[in-house]
């Protein structure tokens, strides 16, 4: 499992004097579970985007084991992310009209055209593990809690070493949120994956090993 080493990371946006994000140093052990908290606009999503290679940093480096994301081009970052990162987002991003299992498998289908049978088996196992029995049901008819659980299964189906969730419980009620939080930390622990969750939700603070608090783009509580 890759460990993270961040140094001198900055992210600037056009028109802003101060960098939106500035992290002199941050390391995470492989397999650790971290919550990133902080008010809206404190740079949580920006940090996640940089850590997953969705965006390129203005300066500094983001190294996962031997891979420095800031040195990779966009397509290379896409490939690296597909191989190593499972993402869960606030708005599930499920495709209406497709079944739960097809939604779980869609990014894999669009990554390699031919789907290995093992991936399908793993998808079925994960869907049952997150508590979905009718995997051929289209996602349009699912509850919001069930939708996010499908999204969790999708994030884990390729066996990523890093699981990243951005406000995964923000649009769920308390019970459904707790179920999703349990699933995320439990499943990441099962596979030994590093888990990074950006969330306002106090749910995660007690569940995860470590809490980082961001304010105005700086880590204030390491």
């Amino acid at each position: 499992m890759p460990a993270l080493r961040v140094s001198e990371l900055t992210m600037r946006f056009a028109g802003l004097d101060r960098p939106a994000l500035a992290i002199p140093a941050l390391t995470l052990d492989a397999g650790s579970q971290v919550a990133i908290t902080g008010p809206s606009g404190s740079g949580k999503t920006t940090l996640l985007n940089l850590l997953t290679g969705l965006e390129r940093a203005s300066g500094g480096s983001v190294c996962w084991s031997a891979t420095d994301l800031t040195a990779l081009g966009e397509s290379a970052r896409d490939r690296w992310r597909a191989a190593h990162v499972g993402l869960v987002m606030q708005d599930f991003h499920l495709l209406p009209g497709l079944s739960a299992i097809d939604n779980v498998l869609l990014p894999q289908r669009l990554a390699r055209l031919r789907l290995p049978q093992a991936t399908r088996t793993e998808a079925e196992r994960l869907l049952r593990r997150v508590g979905l029995e009718r995997i051929e049901q289209t996602v349009d008819t699912l509850s919001r809690g069930q939708m996010q659980r499908v999204a969790v299964a999708r994030a884990l189906v390729a066996g990523p070493g890093i699981v990243v969730a951005d406000e995964p419980t923000a649009s769920l009620d308390a019970d459904a949120g707790a179920a999703v939080a349990d699933l995320l930390s439990g499943l990441a622990r099962d596979t030994g994956a590093t888990l990074i969750v950006a969330s306002h939700d106090p749910l995660f603070v007690g569940r995860l090993d470590r809490v980082l608090r961001l304010e105005a783009g700086r880590i204030v509580q390491p």
Partner: peptide, 15 residues
Amino acid sequence: RQIGALRAFGARREI
């Protein structure tokens, strides 16, 4: 958003 999400989840952009 849908296309962006698919890429974030690992879909290749060529595909």
